Computed example of a mutant assay.
Amino acid sequence: MHLGRLFVLSSLDFGVYSHKGRAFTGTNCSGQAKEINVWVNTCRDTAVPKTRSIRVPEYGGHRQRATFWAEQISAHCGFMWQNSNSNWWADGGSNKFKKGLCINLSGTCNAFSSVSA
């Protein structure tokens, strides 16, 4: 019985992501849409559509920054914010990255990352 509870509790940790967004191919949350999960301190550049805008369905982890990159290669999805198209706090601490809002990115993005700050 105790092992079963331990397994259930430990398996809850594996679903932690830094932020989630609905990626749109057009501006103003138009065009084709796809939900993208970005795990804590990772870069997501596979199965990401050419994204022009996003809608935030829920916040991510505490002190995480959501960063959006033009490059689709992981080597270019580094943690140099000055090379990103857009970045905000993903934990609700941003005045723009808010749940339910549509956010137009400053260009077309092909990779999303999460940075612990």
Rank of each mutant, 00 (worst) to 15 (best):
V56M: 06
H2K: 11
A117I: 14
K34S: 11
D91G: 09
M80F: 14
G31V: 02
M1S: 15
T46W: 03
I73S: 10
W88V: 07
T25E: 01
A90D: 03
V16W: 02
A23H: 07
G92C: 01
F14I: 11
A33R: 05
T25Q: 00
G107K: 03
N37E: 02
G4S: 14
V38K: 01
F68I: 06
V8Y: 14
Q72K: 14
R52Y: 05
S106I: 04
T46S: 15
D91I: 05
N95C: 13
R63P: 02
T51S: 10
W89S: 03
R22F: 15
G4R: 10
T25M: 01
L12A: 03
S10K: 06
M80D: 15
S11M: 09
G31E: 00
S10N: 04
D13Y: 12
N28Q: 00
R65Q: 08
A117L: 15
K98Y: 01
R63G: 12
G60W: 07
T25W: 01
S116A: 08
I54F: 13
G92F: 02
N37V: 05
N41E: 07
M80V: 15
S114C: 06
Q32T: 02
T27I: 07
V115W: 06
S114W: 01
N85A: 09
V48S: 10
C102H: 06
Q64R: 10
W81D: 12
R55Y: 06
T67A: 15
G15S: 09
S86K: 02
G93Q: 00
M80E: 12
P49A: 06
C109D: 09
S106V: 05
Y17M: 04
C43P: 04
G26E: 01
V8I: 15
F14N: 03
L3C: 10
R44L: 08
L101W: 06
L6M: 08
G61L: 11
T25K: 00
V56Q: 06
W69Q: 06
K96H: 12
S113C: 07
N37A: 07
G78D: 14
W89G: 01
E35M: 13
W81C: 10
S113F: 09
W69N: 10
L105H: 11
F79I: 13
H76W: 13
T51A: 12
F68S: 01
H19P: 13
S84D: 12
V48K: 11
S74Q: 12
A47N: 14
W88L: 11
F14S: 12
R5I: 03
N37K: 12
V115N: 01
S106F: 08
L12E: 02
L105V: 13
H62T: 08
F97H: 06
S113E: 02
L3F: 14
T67V: 15
N95G: 15
I54W: 11
G107F: 10
Q72W: 14
G100P: 15
L101N: 02
L9T: 08
N95Y: 14
G92Y: 00
M1W: 07
A90P: 03
Q72N: 14
V8H: 11
H2V: 13
G31R: 00
A66R: 10
G4V: 10
P49S: 06
T42F: 02
V38D: 02
F112H: 06
N95D: 15
V38F: 04
V16Q: 08
S84A: 15
K99W: 03
L9Y: 11
I36W: 00
Q32K: 01
L12K: 04
G60R: 07
K96E: 14
G78M: 09
G26W: 02
W69I: 12
G100H: 08
R22M: 15
I36T: 00
S10T: 11
